[in-house]
C-alpha cells in the first residue's frame, strides 16, 4: 500500500485532529481542553497547506492565516474566561461548571472518578435556569387590592 505525499499529509492532519478530539473529550483541566482545541486547529492547518500545495495556489495558505487569526482570538478570550471562572471556584476543574444541565440531575462525575462535591459559593449570584417542563417558582404575588 502506498500513498501520495498529499495523502500522507492528510493522514497526519487527521491523526492530529483525532488526538485533539480525544484530548478535548477526556481532559478535565480547562486549559488542557483549550489546548486540545488548538491541536485540532493544527490538524486542519496541515490539511489546508497540503491542499494548497497540491493545487498549487495560495488559497489554502490564506485560509491557514485566517485559522491562525481566529485561534489567537479564541485563545485570548478563552484565557480571560478561564481566569474569571478560576476566580469564582479557585479551580480549573471543568466538573464544577455543570450548571447548564437540568437542575435535578446529579452532577456528572465520570466513570471512575469519585463524585465531586460542589461547594456552592454564596457570593456567586449566577442566573438560574428553570428546569425544562417545570412550572417556574413564582413569588407569592402581592395581595389583590382589598
Amino acid at each position: 500500500m502506498t500513498a501520495t505525499v498529499l495523502e500522507s499529509q492528510l493522514i497526519v492532519g487527521a491523526t492530529l485532529f483525532i488526538l485533539g478530539v480525544i484530548g478535548f473529550l477526556t481532559r478535565r483541566n480547562l486549559i488542557l481542553i483549550m489546548l486540545s482545541a488548538e491541536l485540532m486547529l493544527h490538524g486542519v492547518s496541515i490539511n489546508l497547506t497540503a491542499f494548497s500545495r497540491y493545487h498549487g495556489n495560495p488559497q489554502g495558505q490564506v485560509f491557514t492565516i485566517f485559522v491562525l487569526t481566529i485561534a489567537a482570538c479564541e485563545a485570548g478570550l478563552a484565557l480571560s474566561l478561564i481566569l474569571s471562572l478560576y476566580q469564582r471556584r479557585k479551580s480549573l476543574d471543568v466538573f464544577l461548571w455543570g450548571k447548564l444541565g437540568e437542575d435535578d440531575l446529579p452532577v456528572f462525575s465520570g466513570s471512575q472518578a469519585p463524585p465531586v462535591t460542589v461547594t456552592a459559593d454564596p457570593n456567586v449570584d449566577l442566573p438560574h435556569l428553570t428546569p425544562a417542563g417545570r412550572m417556574p417558582k413564582t413569588q407569592p404575588g402581592p395581595q389583590t387590592k382589598t
Binding site: L100, G101, F108
Partner: peptide, 8 residues
Amino acid sequence: PVQNGMVQ
C-alpha cells in the same frame, strides 16, 4: 441525563 451540562 444527556443534558448534564458538561460541554464535553
